[in-house]
């Protein structure tokens, strides 16, 4: 399992959010989540321009066995999606915190970022889940 980058914030449901320098928020799922899901075979990306709401479904990842909703950590407008995942959904398995990002949001309320778990809190959550 790869190290959890310290600049990421998390939902308890295993999505990560990274506040970029340009004010946008990049979203993906954690390395722990991809490990639990197993081989991913399909990602249903949100539409560019669509509105997302914090804590509600914005995308879907499908592993061989199951489909899982991806919740957006923040509210706002989707300004980009990771088109690479259309052909290579396994990128999430290979690099969940990097190349495997899913969508990019222009947040409408940056205060929502403060409500997310930081890397340490998330790590603790994952450790407790494993026992």
């Amino acid at each position: 399992m790869s190290e959890i980058p310290g600049d990421l914030k998390f939902l308890k449901s295993h999505e990560w959010a990274r506040a970029e320098d340009d004010g946008l928020v990049r979203v993906g799922i954690s390395d722990h989540a991809q490990d639990q899901l197993g081989d991913l075979v399909y990602v249903e990306l949100p539409e560019i321009g669509s509105a997302v709401k914090a804590g509600t479904g914005a995308a879907v990842v499908e592993s061989v066995k199951a489909a899982s909703d991806i919740y957006s950590p923040v509210s706002g407008e989707v300004v980009a999606v990771n088109e690479l995942l259309n052909d290579k959904p396994e990128t999430i398995n290979e690099d969940a915190f990097g190349e495997g990002w899913i969508f990019l949001v222009r947040p409408s309320d940056r205060a929502e970022l403060g409500e997310l778990l930081d890397a340490n809190e998330y790590e603790e959550l994952v450790e407790n889940e494993d026992h």
């Binding site: 449901s13 295993h14 999505e15 799922i29 989540a33 639990q36 899901l37 479904g57 990842v61 066995k65 199951a66 489909a67 899982s68 909703d69 991806i70 919740y71 889940e129 494993d130």
Partner: peptide, 8 residues
């Protein structure tokens, strides 16, 4: 994520 698989 919903329907997240749980460890047994």
């Amino acid at each position: 994520m919903r329907d997240f698989p749980r460890q047994a």
